[in-house]
Amino acid sequence: MKPIFTDARVAWHDSMHERSLSITAASMSQAESSAKQTEQRRQRIEVVFAAQGDDKEARIDILRQKLNATETRGDKFNSTNRGAKVAAMARIQRAVAGLPKLLQSFGNFLYSPNPTAADMEYSRYLLAKHVRLPAMTDQQSSKVESLIIPALLSYRDTAFGGREHWSPGRIIEFAHQYEVSFSAANWARDWSSVWERLLDACGGFDQQALDPVWVEINKERGDAANDG
């Protein structure tokens, strides 16, 4: 069977859609849905045959046998594929759960379909605590905090959204929410190196968060190659 996931970011995102889903629950849901659909088809067909002559019972019996065979094959295929995907998602979830809390939240902020306010706050704290900044004046240091959330959002837009990094104008506009002002004319001189350090730090934390997810993906690739 082909690997379920080939990209760590996509794997993280998709796996967080169904955090509490188990293979058993998925299989039961699939079976119940399939059984209900099959019974509805049988009832419709038997109503049609009831008006078509004396041999209707024999024809219904033959059709029932065909339906049973078809549904058994279909259910097996769907259940196998669904079960494989749920199992792959469970392995990714387990890999994510093994990360330190701050890196879990950082990855969830970037890739979860439903990142929380706590994910953003932990990500902000991680970046603020560990980023290595160039030498700055006291006035510059007091402004750095207002750039951390824009850096996180900009990195997320680029890493998983396929968009360009935020422009200086957009960063400056966002910082106004914190009542912090930057000079657009002096951005390149005073702040571009700080901004690049923040983005580089995001890239480093991103790699650390994704490493165990890539381990699971590469292991699945190896298993698929051996089976093939």
Rank of each mutant, 00 (worst) to 15 (best):
L210R: 11
K56F: 04
A117I: 03
I149R: 09
R189L: 09
P113R: 06
L199P: 01
N108F: 06
R42V: 01
A185M: 09
M89Y: 00
A69Y: 08
K2R: 15
A25W: 00
Q52R: 15
G222I: 08
A87T: 06
E57S: 05
A201K: 07
F174A: 09
N81Y: 14
L127M: 15
R42D: 11
N226T: 14
S192F: 02
D157C: 07
C202E: 02
E145D: 15
L198R: 04
Q52I: 00
Q65V: 13
V144T: 02
L67D: 05
A185Y: 10
Q104P: 04
N114H: 03
F77K: 05
G107C: 10
I60C: 03
D119E: 02
F174S: 08
E164P: 01
L133Y: 04
K101P: 01
S79F: 06
R73M: 12
R64F: 04
V194G: 00
N226W: 03
S33R: 13
N78Y: 03
A58P: 01
G228E: 06
S183E: 00
A135I: 03
P150G: 08
P113N: 11
I148Y: 12
S142G: 07
K76S: 14
A209F: 03
G204E: 12
V215I: 15
L152E: 06
M89G: 12
A26V: 03
D55I: 03
D55E: 13
R163L: 12
R163E: 14
T38K: 12
A201R: 11
L127D: 01
S27R: 15
D61I: 09
V213N: 08
N108M: 08
E216A: 07
H165K: 04
Y111R: 06
V144R: 02
R124F: 10
A224R: 03
D14L: 15
T70H: 13
R163A: 08
P100C: 07
P150S: 06
S20A: 07
Q140T: 12
R42E: 02
I172A: 00
R64Y: 00
L153S: 00
V213E: 00
W187D: 10
S183P: 04
H17P: 11
H176T: 12
V131G: 10
R44I: 03
N186D: 15
I62K: 04
F174I: 13
W12K: 05
N81T: 11
Y122F: 13
K76M: 10
T158N: 15
K56M: 04
I149Y: 01
E57I: 00
V144K: 09
A184C: 03
P212C: 07
W12N: 06
Y155W: 11
L210M: 08
Q65P: 02
I171Q: 06
P100K: 06
L103S: 09
D75Q: 12
I23H: 10
K219E: 13
E71M: 08
G169N: 13
L199D: 02
V213D: 04
